[in-house]
Amino acid sequence: QEPLTASMLAAAPPQEQKQMLGERLYPLIHAMHASLAGKITGMLLEIDNSELLLMLESPESLHSKIEEAVAVLQAHQVTESSLKS
C-alpha cells in the first residue's frame, strides 16, 4: 500500500480525509489493541490531519498516542462504572 501523503488528503473532501486516515490508522491500532481499535481510531481522528500524517510516518509517536488513548479510555470507563454502581 502506498503511503498516504498530504496532497492525497488535500484532494479529498474533509469527511473523506478522516476516513482515509482512519483506514491507515485502524490496522496499526488493531495490531496493538484489537478490541478497542475502532474506538481508539475514532479518538485519534479528532486530532489535526497534519499531526495524524506525522504519526503515520513515526511509529513511535503513534504508539505513545495509542497508549495515551487507552489510558484515557480506561480512566473514562472506570468513572462511568463507578457512577452506575
Partner: peptide
C-alpha cells in the same frame, strides 16, 4: 499533563474488514 483525547469520540468503522470473519 491532561490528555486532549476525547473518550466520547465516535467509533471508527473500517470500510473493509482486516480478517475474514464469518458472522
Amino acid at each position: 499533563k491532561k490528555s486532549t483525547l476525547n473518550p466520547n469520540a465516535k467509533e471508527f468503522n473500517p470500510s473493509k474488514p482486516l480478517l475474514s470473519v464469518n458472522k
